[in-house]
Write a protein that binds this DNA or RNA. Structure first.
Length: 111
DNA sequence: GTTCTGACTGCGA
DNA sequence: GTCGCAGCCAGAA
């Protein structure tokens, strides 16, 4: 598929993340039909300007924010997550995880 | 064409 | 829990 379509799918997958929940880069990429393109997701988020896009719900596989602590994006993401009811401690997300085990739980059993 | 860099991931110590 | 290393893909120089 074209990179444009890939980006479109990725954005759709991110928008599909329910409020108060989080997902990992790898998860988003996989759900978008682009397994192994976690880095592409990160890149797109960096270029993205859509305020409607819940990019702050995208975390690393560790369940932590991808930014270094103290960064502007780091603060913004952690603050937004807390505003949605997600507990964030020192850059780590509590209560939820970006593990693939919850994929059907947040995405649904079927497409 | 090659080389670097990166909001990544998984595994082992 | 943390740290280091190798593998990985995509875009920019």
């Amino acid at each position: 598929m074209d990179s444009e379509t890939a980006a479109k799918r990725i954005f759709a997958a991110i928008r599909a993340i329910p409020r108060g929940e989080v997902a990992g880069y790898g998860e988003v990429a996989r759900r978008a039909g682009l397994p192994g393109r976690a880095r592409l997701v990160a890149r797109l988020l960096g270029e993205n300007e859509d305020p409607k896009l819940p990019w702050h719900r995208v975390l690393r596989s560790d369940g932590r924010i991808a930014f270094p602590e103290g960064s502007k994006g780091w603060r913004e993401q952690s603050q937004r997550l807390r505003a949605e009811g997600v507990k964030v401690e020192n850059g780590r997300v509590r209560g939820q995880r970006a593990a693939p085990t919850v994929d059907e739980q947040i995405w649904g059993p079927a497409d």
